[in-house]
Computed example of a mutant assay.
Amino acid sequence: MIDLSDCRTTPLTALHERLGAKIVPFAGYAMPLNYPPGILKEHLHCRARAGLFDVSHMGQISVVSPDGPKAALAALERVMPVDLAGLAEGRQRYGLLTDPAGGIRDDLMAAHLPDRVLLVVNAANKSRDFAHVATALPKLRVKMLEDRALIALQGPEAERVLAGLAPEAAAMRFMDVRVLDLGGTEAIVSRSGYTGEDGYEISVPADAAEALAERLLADEAVEPVGLGARDTLRLEAGLCLHGNDIGPDTTPVEAGLTWAIQKVRRSGGAREGGFPGARRILAELAEGTRRLRVGLLPEGRAPVRGHTPLYAAETGGAKIGEVTSGGFGPSLGRPVAMGYVPAELAEPGTTLWAEVRGKRLPITTAATPFVPNTYKR
């Protein structure tokens, strides 16, 4: 029996239990792994219609400057290699917290709201992220929002469903963020998610979360989806999981996240550097790096899991890389994976070998995403 006695709950835990979810510990929380239909069906339902995810374990951090949100965004550039000063009100941007060695402390979303900046960070890192930002930027008012839930509605019917509560949601573009009235509940809504599908992430007061979730689930297109399918969806979308695919031991350049470092923060840009690890990161942007994150397609039907070693040849030779995330891709009907390999072996179509239970199996490098995204741009 799984011991959940030390786990925190979310505002939707009672709903998960009523829906028959299998509850497991994750990042210190009791979270739904899957519901009675199972991971495969939940995954495919999200791709075909709409899935509802509880992501309330994520950290929501409010950052306020006495000089307004533009000043808060400019200050946050001291801890992130991202163009935040240029982020318009009502827009959100993917960002990275880096460390002095150029590693990735965490990845996050930063939203420019009318009165503040809202950071959404990973559950396992949220206490450290909060302490890091508050310490590095003492002139800002940094607050962890403990009284809010976070719900993700993802899939091709997400727009229709949410527009039934707030018609303005239909006009939002990918990475727009708005404060909307969802049937009497004031919510911070961003058109974003981590599945590769069009959809929304919805921040609401904790005491309003269950009623909102039930209203969304009342639509025949919406089914609850657990962490299991959330992971297979993000893997098919080629999206990194902090602690697996990225972390303090990887730089943004190695991870293939250079697109998240806008031109103004790079060498020669108007606001070049000024963030932790800038020397290494800017050097890698200019000169390249020895290893890169790649997509990987194993042959056959057997998934190749994280930490599987990679080799350049079927026999002999030293380990040249490692799988960081891997599993079965339900949308593709085949296994998919990601990992790190030497830069000279990163070209899509390169055959490598994964050692599974003492046997080397062919695995081919591939571009990501494995399943094209459907973001509304």
Rank of each mutant, 00 (worst) to 15 (best):
L165E: 11
G68A: 10
P11E: 03
G327I: 03
L282N: 10
E77R: 14
Y375E: 01
A72I: 12
E347H: 11
E322P: 00
L76K: 13
E236I: 05
M338C: 08
P36H: 06
G51Y: 07
M172Y: 13
E299A: 13
P138G: 03
A346M: 07
Q154D: 05
T365N: 11
G20E: 01
A208K: 15
V204S: 10
G68K: 14
L4G: 04
P348F: 12
P11C: 01
D231W: 08
A131T: 06
W353D: 00
L180T: 10
R215L: 00
A213P: 02
L150K: 13
A354F: 05
D176E: 05
E344N: 13
V304H: 01
L310G: 04
Y94N: 06
F53G: 07
V264Q: 08
Q154H: 03
L332A: 06
Q154V: 00
P276M: 11
V304S: 01
L15P: 01
A237T: 06
L153I: 00
R265A: 02
E42F: 10
R234N: 07
A312D: 10
P66F: 12
H112M: 13
A229N: 02
A163S: 15
V121A: 04
C7W: 00
Q154R: 08
P32F: 05
L292W: 08
F370N: 00
F53A: 04
L76E: 12
A313W: 11
K319N: 05
A169M: 13
R191L: 00
G274C: 09
N244Q: 12
G268L: 07
D54G: 07
K41D: 14
L282R: 10
V204P: 05
L84S: 09
